[in-house]
Design a protein around this nucleic acid. Structure first.
Length: 529
RNA sequence: GCCGAUGUAGCUCAGCUGGUUUAGAGCGCUGGAUUCAUAACCCGGAGGUCGGUGGUUCGAGUCCACCCAUCGGCACCA
């Protein structure tokens, strides 16, 4: 048995100044599906999520509420953690940027970068909006005619000392790295955006500010507070203890580095695709394999925004759980989401159609009709029958069931591994469709009226049952609960190890196994809206 | 403004480096068949000038130019 290979996947850490909504749930669910798939395949997965808790906004919100920033962070971080639990997510850790283990390591990283000269103290001069307490870029200031867009007051010329990261020094190295790793940023369209911006040239970026205090202070210069984004990016490394390579945490977890996927929303692509790799180069750490930037959900054709108040928020999501169930929600997230370059629309009608077409009419109905015939004709006991060399249909050139399902399983695994979750789900469903086809083609319910043909009926139904079992195995990462139900009803829970392909191998259902009637997804009324 | 996409059946989209078809799939719609199943599954149909115009070519959704429309990125933000 080969040593299980480590697999590290991360979500962004979520900013505690926000309320959890579909965006957070989506990103985290995708990572969860991937994690479950890789675990099912026997890999040693480390799945990380958490909360980003420093910064001006948190400081302000806390002040408005008359509580300490830490109290606000504690409250909202707990909310995120609770929510992740509701979604049945299997993260292996939940990191918070206010934890000592994170803060101490960020300081170690920064010290290292100071020593190497990658971080230096420089002077910043720019146009400052006093009302908003923020700088605006030179070009933006010109556009605004040097007036605040909010208050209309003139912008002032201000200077301050800041620490900078020497990003400009990494232009050539990054370009070489990107050229050598054409799958580093996905989808492709996003990589093109990054490459396009790279052509404008990289400038050093500030890593500290002095206009707020809620954050990690610079070593030896605590009035300079480390910018939230750099603080946040390092979470991926501090969670594994990499800031302190000889520490206990690193001993336990360093083997997970580098990440297989940093899954993020498109709005933070630049940080993850350019600044983060440069920081890692400066720290001497290996590059992540892939930064996957998904797009956004829109709501009934409209962008979600605070002003429109049309966020798919937790109560809304809870409504879907109540009506369709958690696994149906996960199916929708995994197969219909904005995983590509384009935003995806979330609508009650579409959700319902997908639920009915894929889960009720296809997956559940097939599991139901098959188990029903098993009960009716074989007293709910898997008949002994040789099905491996049986063709999936009478059509010329049709593959055998064992070959067909093995190929489907390999394809499904590849899709999961490559973060093509919709394709993985659909490939698994294709087995169910083939079972439906077999039933229709051979009509075992007709043959069963002739007692001399029961051997043939046995072969057909046995193949159907095995097909359903294999499909349920392959769909488990997306729908762990319902597939668990089906596999339990079919008397064949997934074995503890051996990998996804072994679990999906034809012939897992032994003769004599009890198979109970099951119907995992029931029809529900269409939404009125 | 700069950079980059996309525009194919009602909807969501496949169509790689041009000539396998009379341009495909899923969903929706419609006719039929059927009963093992959750009015499900299966078969058939409905026809979209492949955004527009002009080119290159023996031949173009598939290449080029221009135009129209929609969208994304441009360093707060899933």
């Amino acid at each position: 048995m080969p040593r299980p290979s480590p697999a590290y996947i991360t979500t962004p850490i979520y900013y505690v100044n926000d309320r959890p909504h579909i965006g957070h749930a989506y990103t985290t669910t995708l990572c969860d599906v991937w994690s479950r798939a890789m675990r099912l395949d026997g890999r040693d997965v480390f799945f990380l999520t958490g909360t980003d808790e420093h910064g001006l906004k948190v400081e302000k919100s806390a002040r408005d509420r008359g509580i300490s920033p830490q109290a606000l962070a504690d409250e909202n971080s707990a909310e995120f953690r609770k929510v992740m639990g509701l979604f049945g997510l299997t993260n292996d850790d939940f990191i918070r940027t206010t934890e000592p283990r994170h803060e101490s390591q960020v300081k170690l990283f920064v010290e290292k970068l100071m020593k190497s000269g990658d971080i230096y103290l420089g002077e910043f001069a720019g146009w400052y909006d006093e009302g908003q307490e923020e700088y605006v870029t030179d070009t933006r200031a010109k556009e605004l005619e040097y007036k605040s867009p909010i208050s209309g007051k003139p912008l002032v010329r201000a200077t301050e000392k800041n620490y900078y990261f020497r990003l400009s020094a990494y232009q050539a190295k990054l370009e070489a790295f990107f050229a050598a790793n054409p799958r580093f940023v996905r989808p492709d369209g996003r990589f093109n955006e990054v490459l396009g911006r790279m052509r404008d040239g990289l400038q050093d970026v500030p890593v500290t500010r002095t206009n707020f205090t809620w954050g990690i202070g610079m070593p030896d210069a605590p009035e300079h507070v480390i910018y939230v984004w750099i603080d946040a990016l390092f979470n991926y490394a501090t969670a594994l203890g990499l800031g302190d390579p000889n520490g206990a945490l690193a001993k336990d977890r360093a083997r997970f580095w580098p990440p297989e996927y940093h899954v993020i929303g498109k709005e933070i692509l630049w940080f993850h695709a350019v600044i983060w790799p440069a920081l890692l180069m400066a720290c001497g750490l290996e590059m992540p394999k892939c930064v996957y930037a998904h797009s956004f959900w829109i709501s009934n054709g409209q962008k979600m925004s605070k002003s429109l108040g049309n966020f798919i928020d937790l109560p809304t999501i809870q409504g879907y759980f109540d009506k369709y169930g958690l696994d149906a929600w996960r199916w929708y997230m995994a197969t219909q989401g904005p995983i590509g370059t384009q935003d995806a629309d979330f609508s009650p009608k579409h959700f319902h159609e997908i639920y009915t077409a894929n889960l009720v009419n296809t997956f559940a109905n097939c599991a139901s009709r098959t188990s029903s015939m098993m009960e009716k004709y074989f007293a709910g006991s898997m008949p002994a029958a040789d099905t491996a060399s049986m063709p999936i249909s009478a059509a010329a050139g049709a593959p055998t069931w064992s070959v067909f399902t093995q190929q489907a399983a390999e394809k499904t695994l590849k899709h999961y591994s490559d973060f093509e979750l919709a394709e993985a789900g659909n490939t698994a469903l294709s087995i169910v469709r083939a079972v439906d086809l077999l039933i229709n083609e051979t009509a075992p319910f007709k043959l069963a009226k002739d007692p001399t043909k029961m051997d043939e009926v046995a072969r057909i139904i046995a193949a159907c049952a095995e097909g359903v079992r294999v499909a349920a195995v392959l769909l488990t990462p997306i729908m762990p609960n319902k597939c668990g139900e089906v596999l339990a009803a079919y008397g064949s829970p997934i074995a503890a190890d051996g990998g996804m392909l072994a679990a999906a191998r034809w012939g897992g259902l032994k003769a004599g196994t009890k198979i109970a009637k099951c119907a995992p997804f029931m029809r529900v009324d269409a939404p009125t809206a």
